[in-house]
Computed example of a mutant assay.
Amino acid sequence: MSWTDLARNGRILIVDDAMENIQVLHQALQSEHETLFAMSGEKAIEIARAQKPDLILLDAMMPGMDGYAVCTALRASDATRDIPVIFVTVLNATEDETRALEAGAADFITKPVNAAVVRARVRTHLTIKRQSDILRALTMTDSLTGVANRRCLDETIDSEWRRCARMGEPIALILADIDHFKLYNDEYGHQAGDACLQAVASAMRRAAARPQDLVARYGGEEFAILLPMLDVRGAEVVANKLLAEIELLAIPHARSSTAPSVTLSLGVAALRPADGAHLDSLLKTADALLYQAKSLGRNRCCLPL
């Protein structure tokens, strides 16, 4: 089985302060899964945030940060809270298992481990996680355009705002509106309107192509592009690229008073959360600039002075 196939089957992070225990679990899983390992709680959290494993096998008793503290920290972080954790430990009392489950563990295996049991438990929890991921993706995706929905945007903008605040980085937001879209639907019909929305969403994904960028349908013919770690000048580049992408689409719009094809109006804002700014200010500024773009004739982006 190739390394790519192993990763596709699930990436497992093994956490134990004893290398011999890591080797036992690695031997049990290496034929089916990609395995990573950490020998301390602090390193486990670092790897979990960077590598995003699909499952963590965690020892309870470790010097310094023990397994319970690690599990609690993983659950407290937006980046790692959805990774299932299986405790693998010599502890076997009911209160130990209860404590692990209360810390957020999905399962509890006692040492010495049985390789067949470990493989079975791992497969079970990976299956549950994949099903959960699929359901979550469905609830976070706009069914028509395939981009994120308003719920996903609300959750992501909050977490990215806090992340940029911690890092001292700016965050930018573009609010976009398809010009004269009601007239487009009246002229060409709702089926053509749906196709137009899909084409515009695809153009947005081409314009905002970094892994951390998020394109979301804000409502109706309105979209938002979230750009973490970009200032207003960087966001302006994305906005201008988007306007160019829309022009290339050349979707006819006979009833538009702006242009013979579909166009967008954009409001572009950026703030640095670490400067004491509030998330509401980012949203209000982008919205006000979108309104300004419309009032100035549409088919343009407006930025803060």
Rank of each mutant, 00 (worst) to 15 (best):
R8H: 13
G10H: 09
D17R: 01
Q27A: 15
Q30I: 12
H33L: 11
A38C: 15
M39C: 14
E42N: 05
K43H: 08
K52L: 15
P53C: 01
D54C: 00
D54H: 00
P63C: 08
M65T: 14
D66F: 00
C71A: 01
C71Q: 01
T72G: 09
R75F: 04
S77H: 06
R81K: 13
D82G: 11
D82M: 10
V88K: 07
A100L: 07
L101A: 09
T110Q: 04
V113R: 05
V118S: 12
A120L: 12
A120T: 14
T127P: 15
T127D: 11
R130H: 13
Q131C: 07
D133G: 03
R136H: 02
R151W: 02
E155M: 09
D158M: 14
S159F: 01
R163F: 06
E169I: 07
I171Q: 06
A172S: 11
A176S: 15
A176W: 03
H180C: 14
Y188A: 05
Y188N: 03
C196W: 02
V200M: 06
S202D: 13
M204W: 02
L214N: 04
E222K: 06
L226S: 01
L227G: 09
M229A: 15
D231N: 12
V232L: 07
V232E: 14
R233P: 13
E236M: 12
E236L: 14
L242N: 01
A244Y: 14
I246F: 03
L248S: 11
L249A: 07
L249G: 09
H253E: 00
P260E: 11
S261G: 05
S265C: 02
A270S: 10
R272K: 11
P273A: 06
G276P: 12
G276F: 06
L279Q: 08
D280F: 07
D287C: 05
A293G: 09
K294D: 08
S295F: 02
G297L: 09
L303Q: 08
L305P: 15
